[in-house]
Write a protein that binds this DNA or RNA. Structure first.
Lengths: 318, 318
DNA sequence: CCAGATTATACTCATTATGAGAATAATTGG
DNA sequence: CCAATTATTCTCATAATGAGTATAATCTGG
């Protein structure tokens, strides 16, 4: 066998248990939602087992088992090694492999425990669809400033302030919706989220608004949201979240729900149209009020025809 | 403990061994290079061990141990589970976690075995700096057509042709330098690379030009190249590969080496300048011929100031 | 059946980004 | 000084983007 598998003289090669964790996203009337278990404080997950044909199959099996939900689109997010578990007999590594899954929030006939929760329940500062949420300037800004000042003097203090300003758009900077993870990490570092002080005796400041999760699940969720917010811009993945037939406005609302920002309606239309991502069904909505909207479906064929982009998010000012 | 860690009734939770694999990239006079071991047919790798503080540390340790090379910038690429190994007593899973690392190809005082190899040795069809390589239209196109025709009739045959055309830019389509992995996978599927027929008794067609690697290392390399080609466009990672001080042309050549395409010199300059990614050192080159070029260094400060893009690759024709 | 109200869809316009090429500048080697 | 060579600066046409306005097709209440 090649050099690849040889063991170093000094090291002890140690087997690890492998955990699969899923960020399952759908967009419902409650907004952008994530599939949770255990009283909405955990993501579906479970160990990778011998019976699983592959990582993806293992993940699908666990999600279905725990939530009754079948997954469609899946992509890998990140792999990390937890710190060694303490309190167990043998030192044992745990490798966690996380995935992002996109689906529609229907057919729910499974076990209990599962629930769709808006991801803004966990990250209330991430929803800028009606402008920056008050809590950003009312709470976060001052708390982060305090944290920066704790750094004493200037090399570090300035740096902390700047990081906060970039991440949260302070001092007249633009809000960048993709920095979900950086923002969470900043709040974690500043001990403004509950999980940051969990294991230690470090004093937790008064908790920030926003639901928490077990272990590092909220961090994984942040990773998933960040990935999705980035990905919708260069790959047509939104359609994984749409029903087979939809109006432009519905599509737009979905993009807005995900990105947490509003987009400019005519420009959004132009963008989708000029890429020929959708085609008319011929039908129109028989809704309540206003001019009826044409119905469209995703042109799956584009995926075969060429390398396609998503939507560049033509943004609006508040 | 939460639902996360409970085991299913039926499954056998099975520990796995974890392998770390590195795609270490530098740009030398030989062009874009990858660090190899074992006679240039393997990537540096080794098991994740108890002594390793984290996945990244484990990776660094292995690369240093096998090649004497210290790593700087690292990012995770992908995690996959090998098929169960056959011929071993117990069924054992192997999880491989691959990383992309960027460095400069200097200080090499380490063990033997290591070597920098141009990545175009492994993927000769990927270098389009002097236009499409002859082998693309001379060899690949006809072989891929043959493979498409093997599919018999039309639903599948058409699809194969189209995939090949998109990936390799046949029929007057544009070459997309980011599709490294898709191209490799297509060639693998068509059994045009040696490793595709390794385990089976399936007849290998005459091998394509291009060096091979053990196991799936060439595939991992393709993943790394693809990631890097994509990433230089939206994050200023090229500078990880540059010496502390450099000219615009050197920077340009590096970008070209990585992307496998030529860029338009004045526009490239404009792009870098307007983003203020570099600053003059005040010095100029004392080279041989022509007007001396100003020397620049990367403005590390930009990373703190704002979210920065890379370079959008202002392309040239041929 | 008409006047708002309401939503959908189509245009227009200014500004910026991008791709391409030409022009000018500073060297070296005769 | 001239030709060759590389660096650097400009110009220009075209495309992409952000923003706003105008028109179209409905419904509701009078």
């Amino acid at each position: 066998m090649p050099a690849t598998t040889k063991k170093s003289a000094s090291g002890k090669a140690q087997d690890a248990s492998v955990d699969l964790i899923a960020v399952v996203v759908a967009v419902t009337d409650q907004g952008p939602s994530v599939l949770t278990v255990g009283g909405a404080n955990a993501l579906p997950s479970g160990p990778f087992e011998l019976g699983h044909r592959s990582l993806q199959f293992g993940l699908r099996a666990w999600v279905e088992h725990q939530t009754g939900h079948q997954l469609g689109y899946i992509e890998q997010l990140y792999t990390f090694a937890d710190r060694d578990r303490i309190g167990e007999q043998r030192q044992q590594r745990v490798i966690s492999i996380s995935y992002l899954a996109l689906t529609r929030a229907e057919h729910a006939a499974g076990p209990s425990m599962r629930a769709w929760r808006s991801w803004y329940d966990y990250f209330p500062w991430e929803d800028h669809r009606s402008g920056a949420p008050p809590m950003v300037s009312d709470i976060l800004q001052s708390r982060l400033l305090t944290w920066a000042d704790e750094a004493g003097h200037d090399p570090l203090r300035r740096e902390r302030r700047q990081r906060a300003a970039i991440a949260f758009g302070f001092d007249g900077r633009d809000w960048n919706e993709e920095l979900v993870l950086q923002r969470y990490e900043l709040l974690y570092e500043a001990a403004l989220v509950e999980e940051a002080t969990r294991g230690s005796e470090r004093s937790a400041s008064l908790p920030l608004p926003g639901a928490t999760m077990i272990a590092d699940h909220r961090r994984i969720l942040a990773t998933g949201i960040a990935r999705l917010r980035s990905k919708i811009k260069y790959r047509p993945v939104v359609f994984e979240l749409m029903p087979p037939v939809f109006t432009f406005l519905q599509l737009q609302r979905t993009v807005e729900a995900l990105s947490g920002r509003l987009v400019h309606k005519p420009n959004f239309r132009r963008l989708i149209e000029q890429q020929e991502l959708v085609e008319e069904t011929g039908e129109t909505t028989a809704d309540t009020v206003g001019r009826p909207a044409k119905l469209f479906r995703f042109r799956h064929a584009v995926l075969d025809e060429r390398v396609v982009a998503g939507t560049k998010l033509p943004l609006s000012r508040a």
